[in-house]
Each structure stands twice: as structure tokens, then as C-alpha cells.
């Protein structure tokens, strides 16, 4: 993948996520945008992340973890990547992409780590389906 297109995807994702969070905070949408949930009626692995982040921002940490623990990961990734992207933008560096490619390389070369992550994601997904998020 070309580095420049990767940079734009990361920027668009971070900006889109902040706009989505801002929109969710004010509008409290009841309709989900998730294709899987709207078609099958069952939640996808990431369903509930926005609600979880909203709960974290409101200070309900335990409830957020019970709703979907991925909210913590999502919020940390969003804040971290936004700070890195801002530094890149101001100082004209390439830190975000380098960090991203480093993690990707680590996941490719360590199958055990990838397997553990996939296992955790599947367990979390089963839990989400059970909770009917």
C-alpha cells in the first residue's frame, strides 16, 4: 500500500470518528448505521463501541466495560492516533504511518499474538450477541 493513501485513510478515519462521537453526544441516535446489524439483526464485533465510549466520557467506567470492553481500546486508539496525526501534520513527520506499519509487521510475524487477538474478539462478539447490543 502506498504510504500517502494510508495517511489519508488514517486521517479520514480519525476525523470521521471525532465527528461521529460529537454527533452521537448531541443527537443520541437510536438507529444503528451498522450493515450487519441492520440486515441480520445480530450485532457485529464492534457494535456498542460508541455507546461504550459515551459511557466512559460520562464517567461510568464499569458500565462501559460491561457494555463493550472494546470502547476502552477504541477511545485509546482514537486519542493516540489523533495526537500522532496532529504532530505529523504540524512537524511534517511520518510517525503515525511508521507506528501503524510497525504494528502491522508485528502482527504478521507473530501468529500467536494474532490468534490471541482473534480469540478475544470472537469471545467478545459472542458476549455481544448474548447481550443483544
Amino acid at each position: 500500500m502506498k504510504r500517502s493513501s494510508l495517511e489519508w485513510i488514517l486521517r479520514a478515519l480519525a476525523l470521521g470518528s471525532w465527528i461521529w462521537l460529537l454527533f452521537s453526544n448531541h443527537a443520541h441516535p437510536t438507529k444503528s448505521l451498522c450493515l450487519i446489524k441492520n440486515i441480520s439483526g445480530q450485532p457485529c464485533p464492534a457494535c456498542g463501541t460508541t455507546r461504550s465510549i459515551m459511557l466512559i466520557l460520562d464517567g461510568h467506567f464499569w458500565e462501559a466495560s460491561l457494555l463493550n470492553p472494546m470502547g476502552w481500546f477504541g477511545l485509546l486508539a482514537l486519542i493516540g492516533s489523533s495526537i500522532l496525526l496532529l504532530i505529523d501534520w504540524i512537524l511534517s513527520k511520518k510517525w503515525t504511518e511508521t507506528f501503524f506499519l510497525l504494528i502491522e509487521q508485528r502482527l504478521k510475524t507473530k501468529p500467536l499474538l494474532s490468534l490471541i487477538i482473534i480469540f478475544l474478539l470472537i469471545i467478545n462478539w459472542i458476549w455481544s450477541i448474548q447481550k443483544q447490543l
Partner: peptide, 21 residues
């Protein structure tokens, strides 16, 4: 396609809120 990082991002963001998908 071997783009594991972007795959994980797509998974975690619900396919970029469905738009990226």
C-alpha cells in the same frame, strides 16, 4: 490482501461506519 492493520481498523470501526465498507 495482507493489509492486516487496515483490516483490524475496519473491524473495530464497524467497516468505517459502513461507509468504508
Amino acid at each position: 490482501l495482507g493489509e492486516i492493520g487496515l483490516g483490524v481498523l475496519k473491524l473495530l470501526t464497524c467497516g468505517g461506519l459502513g461507509i468504508w465498507a
